[in-house]
Design a protein around this nucleic acid. Structure first.
Lengths: 220, 220
DNA sequence: GCGCGCTATTGACCAACGTTCAATCGATGC
DNA sequence: GCATCGATTGAACGTTGGTCAATAGCGCGC
């Protein structure tokens, strides 16, 4: 597919009749970066990391392969940056829960927002959070940090009764987050069997019960 | 390291004095396959899928690159096959729980075995089960099947009281498995803070509490 | 309005990778 | 000993991630 036309001839043809080469479009740095990240998120939602080539990305973005390396030092970094953006996006959606609500209600509202996100970004959620981990250690780090931030919010919401969180409680809460994640993924495929409200309430009461159980077991 | 000696000379020398070209070693098919899978498991425990090249594997095994394709049709299949073996291995270790024990004890013993496995194969567990998912859809399938088989055993162990498992209970149990997995991974890095027995008991009582809560919420 | 510098953008290039295949060598049965 | 079968090799190929010098669009000073 390469040598159909001798070099000189090709160049001559180009200069003579101008075979409709699409004009260069210049963009601001931040613009392009964001456009590329958005595109990356879209692409990586449909196929996995190594099923998508740099050429695919460049073609889909309508730019040359080399330009990608002007914005990202490597494909890995590009991917990781996309994951980071997605994680931040999720945290943004789940974030703003009224500080005045009682702890349980805060948890319930937070979980509702979380499920909103999961439903709206089903594939993104599944591929980025569940499937992305193997690609790069940095991705695991991002996911762990995201979990830790969620944990921090919950603990903060727990508020008064516990000045210092015993390690057992932290452990159980981390486990609970894992439970939320896998139950959500599961629920995505079985939405017909279990209504969303039930799932949400179940997760809330699970958190309560688990913390209580942990306190009984762990502190004594 | 290759061109120190002109070709013809090298060949002549070979015919004359035999410059110690390592002799071919022939192996039975099953042997080699197993050897290669073991090696793969070892390698993939240390570095991720695309950090390890076919050449690396071949070199580590002391065979030529081409031979790998005599046993496995592709690198992906090779990797997936390794994951499958690891999953089977885990199920084998956790499997044989006395059928006569009361449900709770069965769960406790099973969890103990599970933690045995997790401790013994820490890195393998983390990389294969946590990080492997992104590489191939087949890996996700394997992991899901493994979870489903564990779930089936637990449900079977639940025994009499429930003839038919309500979807809510199944959902919660799947969530619980997710909790076990992430709590285990977490615990691996915090073993000093939380003793193993506490974790195990915590998970057992979690299961109990969760099922009870699910039955209360879901059936009514 | 004009050139000039800055940099976004390109396309050709490279090394490395996964994969294929004809040729070879070793053991095994006759 | 010889033929046969299959394990084993090494060279080759197409594709991929990544590099680089050259180019062309844009904003700035004049």
């Amino acid at each position: 597919m390469h040598g159909l036309m001798p070099r000189k001839l090709a160049r001559a043809a180009h200069l003579a009749t101008a075979p409709r080469k699409p004009p260069r479009v210049r963009r601001r740095l931040a613009d392009r970066r964001e456009q590329l990240l958005d595109l990356g998120r879209a692409l990586f939602n449909e196929r996995s990391y190594d099923e998508i080539s740099i050429d695919d990305i460049a073609a889909a973005a309508g730019i040359s392969k080399g330009l990608l390396y002007h914005y990202f030092p490597s494909k890995r970094v590009f991917y990781v940056e996309g994951v980071r953006a997605a994680a931040a996006h999720m945290l943004d959606i789940v974030e703003p829960v009224d500080r005045d609500l009682p702890p349980i209600d805060r948890l319930r509202v937070g979980l509702d927002r979380y499920l909103d996100y999961v439903e709206a970004n089903a594939r993104a959620y599944a591929t980025l959070f569940r499937s992305g981990m193997g690609v790069d250690a940095a991705v695991s780090t991002i996911i762990e940090e995201t979990r830790e931030r969620i944990l921090a919010r919950i603990v903060e919401g727990l508020g008064d009764p516990l000045r210092v969180i015993p390690p057992v409680v932290a452990l159980v809460l981390r486990g609970w987050i894992g439970m939320v994640e896998s139950a959500s993924l599961d629920w995505l495929e079985r939405r017909r069997e279990v209504p969303r409200d039930i799932l949400r309430d179940l997760l809330v009461t699970s958190a309560q019960t688990l913390v209580v159980a942990a306190l009984e077991r762990g502190s004594t």
